[in-house]
């Protein structure tokens, strides 16, 4: 590999870069710092970087998963632990379902030429236009009175799958189009059925697209608040719902709430660092390539 040659820039340019990075990451960093502080330290007037870091807030939030006794916890509030499990199940299951169905649909649309790409991009855009708030009333009504799946995880998963499908189909389509059809024909020549062609030839080739789609779906399901709030009952609440419930109270326990916020933010942050290339591909695929 040849050494890449970089242009030299003047110092002011680097100063600007540093400032931008601080602006972008600063608030997240501050949340992390606050979540490691005792409330005494949060309220004190002294410098915000001189303090003893502690994991107490995380212990309070995750108390029912602790394998040891944390001396400062008198009463264990299990709300957050339960919500974390709900969030994980809901986000993972809806991601898997969306990917499987979305992938099949995208493949059919590309290979069997149902509708042109224009129709699909147009309907994706149309679906993207619908704000979750618009789905609030009908989803609440239908889920409660007709399907009677309000308050269940399955109900929440169903909405998330439907919400994410248009985008997933659209993005996967742009990857499937690039798979050379000759490969599939060769496989068919060797006696593979349509399902075999799909699972053994096409799927392995579009892994980057699948990664991008998976991350976007997981993110929506993991972060969504409004519909989960309307549909969930005590036992199926997700993390965003519990967070909002605990800030509407008059007295905010900043340390603990920042710890829960941090826990909610960690999976997307990990994804970003592991797969930023795929995320950027997913983000730009639609707009730049058209």
């Amino acid at each position: 590999m040849a050494e890449k040659v970089y242009d030299r820039q003047n110092p002011a340019f680097y100063a600007l870069l540093v400032a931008l990075v601080v602006m972008a990451v600063g608030p997240i960093f501050m949340m992390l710092i606050t979540s490691l502080k005792l409330n005494v330290d949060i309220m004190s007037d002294s410098s915000s970087l001189l303090f003893m870091p502690t994991l107490r807030n995380y212990e309070t939030a995750l108390c029912d998963f602790l394998w040891y006794d944390a001396p400062h916890i008198d009463y264990c509030d299990k709300t957050f632990g339960r919500a974390l499990i709900n969030s994980l199940i809901i986000a993972l299951v809806s991601t898997v379902i969306t990917l499987v169905i979305g992938c099949m649909a995208a493949y059919a649309l590309v290979r069997f030429r149902f509708m042109g790409r224009d129709t699909v991009s147009l309907s994706t855009l149309a679906m993207r236009m619908v704000p979750p708030a618009v789905l609030l009333v009908p989803v609440f009504g239908i889920w409660t009175f007709q399907f009677q799946i309000d308050g269940t995880r399955a109900g929440i998963i169903l909405v998330y799958v439907a919400m994410n499908l248009p985008f997933v189909i659209w993005i996967l389509q742009s990857f499937i189009v690039q798979v050379p059809i000759q490969l599939e024909e060769a496989a068919r020549m060797d006696g593979a059925g349509p399902f075999q062609v799909f699972f053994l030839v096409v799927l392995p080739l579009i892994k980057p697209g699948l990664a991008a789609a998976a991350i976007f779906t997981f993110r929506v399901a993991w972060n969504e608040f409004l519909l989960a709030n309307a549909l969930a009952d005590r036992n199926s609440r997700t993390v965003p719902v519990t967070i909002v419930n605990s800030i509407t109270e008059f007295d905010i326990d900043w340390g603990v709430i920042m710890a829960t916020g941090m826990l909610l933010a960690i999976p997307p942050i990990i994804f970003t660092f592991v797969a930023s290339r795929q995320i950027i591909t997913g983000m730009t695929a639609g707009a730049v390539k058209g």
Partner: peptide
């Protein structure tokens, strides 16, 4: 990578911060 972080974390958490 650092610049896409704010978009990836939950809006609820953004509000909180």
């Amino acid at each position: 990578t650092l610049f896409i972080l704010p978009m990836m974390i939950a809006p609820i958490v953004v509000g909180l911060m």
